[in-house]
Design a protein around this nucleic acid. Structure first.
Lengths: 174, 174
DNA sequence: ACTGAAATTATGCGAGC
DNA sequence: GCTCGCATAATTTCAGT
């Protein structure tokens, strides 16, 4: 994944920005990333102090990291349960061998749906893992039927309930 | 997941805060959550304007959402590839039937590791799905051997490579 | 990369609806 | 009980050094 993929997910991506011309990350960058992955709203002052640099320098570094695509964005982590989406599931999707070309279109549709939290394009017997959060089992069933089973490219689906889901650092890497 | 689980993931969780005493979310709250899930660093002014309320009111609302646990945190979304973690994988883990009690301990260990992006505790033949990002296949192999296969509670693992991963709104829900 | 000043933004309080 | 507007404090930003 060094040379970034480009097929899926064109919804809100601000343009991958090409990591090719990126200077390697130094220790200070790593501190900034670590702090920001834990708390994206830390004041620039405090962030600079934590990294041992001046606030203005810190600001420039963070801007650079965003411009280079190292930081892909800042997001609030919202509890799906608070929105009534109590039921999370992972749906393994198998695509028809002859329909692999319309595969990008399917994932583009999926990522636009509110229920969809993650789309994993994987190796193995299945082609996709779709991580979804729905209000109840009825909505989950509808999701599978309407958006997956009904799709001409989908050969089969297997729905696996998620009892619990932990995302250590909001999905970011330290 | 209305009454929240509590077994896994005690790393950086700031205390679940109990969603029970939560007033239902109104339309304004939903606008705030939608905006913040897309851009956690939007200035309070702009956020207030988007929601059609005064800045101070907006501030109070956001604080309330955080206090109630609706917003679990604010995180920078960092590209694993930029940190040299080019290789993502999903590892399906089966736990020994007799070792289900030490199951929480395993996941607690896992979420503390830098390579681990998500831990899904699932229904079905497998017990866990572990989403990891590593630098290369050697590191991935080491991860599986050292942290999973070597664990006394682990019965079997199956490693599935991820070709591409899309997280529409940083994992948050609109 | 740091220091300083100027502009922008965040916060808390009292009043009003 | 929730909202607003203003005064104050903090932060971001951009110059020069």
């Amino acid at each position: 994944m060094s040379s970034k993929h480009s097929s899926i997910g064109s919804s809100s991506a601000p343009a991958p920005k090409d990591l090719r011309s990126a200077p390697p990350l130094d220790d200070i960058d790593r501190i900034l990333l670590d702090r920001l992955s834990r708390d994206a709203r830390i004041p620039n002052n405090a962030l600079a102090a934590a990294a041992g640099i001046a606030p203005s320098t810190c600001l420039g570094r963070v801007r650079s990291l965003v411009d280079r695509g190292v930081i892909r964005g800042f997001h609030a982590d919202i509890d799906p349960a608070a929105l009534g989406r109590d039921l999370e599931a992972m749906i393994a999707v198998r695509v028809l061998a002859g329909a692999r070309k319309s595969l990008g279109a399917l994932s583009t549709q999926l990522v636009a749906l509110d229920e969809v939290l993650d789309v994993y394009f994987i190796a193995g017997a299945d082609d996709y893992l779709i991580h979804v959060a729905t209000q109840n089992s009825g909505e989950l069933r509808n999701f599978v039927l309407e958006h997956l089973s009904a799709h001409p490219a989908v050969a089969s689906t297997e729905t696996i309930l998620i009892f619990e889901h932990v995302r250590p650092r909001g999905g970011a890497v330290a």
